[in-house]
Amino acid sequence: MKKIIPTLLAVCACAGVGAQDMGKLLATGGVSQVEGAGGGGITPWALISGYGTRDSWGANAHYTYVGTQDYKLNTYGVTAGIQDRLELSFANQEFKGSLAPLDKLNVKQDIIGLKLKVLGDAVYEQDTWVPQVAVGLMYKKNKGIHGLEALGVTNVRQLGARDDSGYDYYVSATKIYLEYSLLLNATLRATRANQMGILGFGGDRNDDTRLKPEFSAAYLINRKLALGAEYRFKPHNLGVDDEKAYYDAFIAWFPTKNFSVTAAYANLGDITIFNPKKQKGLYLSLQAGF
């Protein structure tokens, strides 16, 4: 983490970007999605993270907690938006079990992301139906399984996954209707990831890259408060993981451009056959930026 922040700031400097102007409208930088990209809670949006305009840049750091009956997920990371066109992100995920036989489970994953705005402007082009469109990728590296050594499991391949690293590719389209205080987003993701990559990539049931849609909608109650919902379709690659879609209902508070809080009720579906129940609970994310 200490190395990533200076690296992102150095990229901004090398790009010849001027000082931060924080010129974008409040809340239009989005929040930090659970994999590090700017967007909602569980899906990326076409919006570029931060409040810097096309002659500026912005950066933020975030911490996200997801707690269900049997599992906990902690994510922290940093994101930089350059000239309201390019976004760079880094996130680390730590996934833990809390109920036997997986009560000692601990899995970590690093995610490096890149997003490029290629068309439109979600905010300022209100006279056209054309949304803002961005393309992105995420490189994910699973760092092994800990706590299950007694069962002889130390790597996701031993659960049936084909690889411990992989790429997600996506295209997102986002439109903000200021007249109706409404944000709509659709994302199409090409992925082989099992539970976002926490359980590896590909598997004994399927090893093909599949296209999976994701949707978000948010209503701006006022300038500082947004209420919304998301739905994310998932692949089902592993025999030991009855993977289902993710969905949530969230409320996001933006007291200033430097800080935001997002709280949600999240349903992550079944995660493994060892604790076969729908995993649902609290999602909480804090973001600080400049």
Rank of each mutant, 00 (worst) to 15 (best):
A218T: 00
A190Y: 05
Y283N: 08
Q126P: 06
K175H: 01
G152A: 02
V66T: 04
N275Y: 04
Y71K: 09
R157P: 00
T174I: 02
H236N: 15
P276A: 11
E230Y: 08
A19G: 03
A263R: 00
D242Y: 10
Y63C: 03
G58Q: 10
G81M: 11
K24R: 14
E179F: 14
K108H: 14
G77N: 06
R192T: 10
K108N: 05
N275F: 14
L238Q: 03
S32I: 02
K104F: 01
V78Y: 11
G120Y: 14
I145M: 05
D164A: 11
V153P: 01
W129P: 07
Y231W: 03
K234W: 07
E125S: 13
K96Q: 05
L183G: 12
T68R: 04
D127W: 15
G120L: 11
D84E: 06
G269N: 09
A173S: 12
Y247C: 01
I48A: 09
A80L: 05
K224L: 12
G202Y: 13
E94C: 15
K117F: 02
K117R: 09
I221Y: 15
L102K: 05
A15D: 08
Y170M: 02
K143R: 15
L9K: 07
K234Q: 12
V240L: 09
R205N: 14
L8N: 04
I42N: 11
R162D: 05
A122H: 12
S216H: 11
E125R: 11
H146K: 09
K244Q: 12
Q279N: 11
A288L: 10
S260P: 01
R192P: 11
F201H: 10
L102Q: 11
E149Q: 07
G81I: 12
D164N: 13
I112Q: 03
N267Q: 06
I251Q: 00
I273M: 13
N142T: 04
A288E: 11
Q195K: 05
G203E: 02
G197I: 13
R223M: 14
P276H: 14
S49N: 12
Y246D: 12
A100M: 00
G67W: 05
P255I: 00
A173E: 01
I48K: 14
A218M: 03
T209Y: 03
F274A: 03
K141I: 13
V240E: 14
D204I: 14
N155W: 08
G289Y: 04
K141E: 02
I221G: 09
K117V: 00
Q195M: 13
T68Y: 06
W253N: 00
Y170N: 11
K280N: 12
S285H: 10
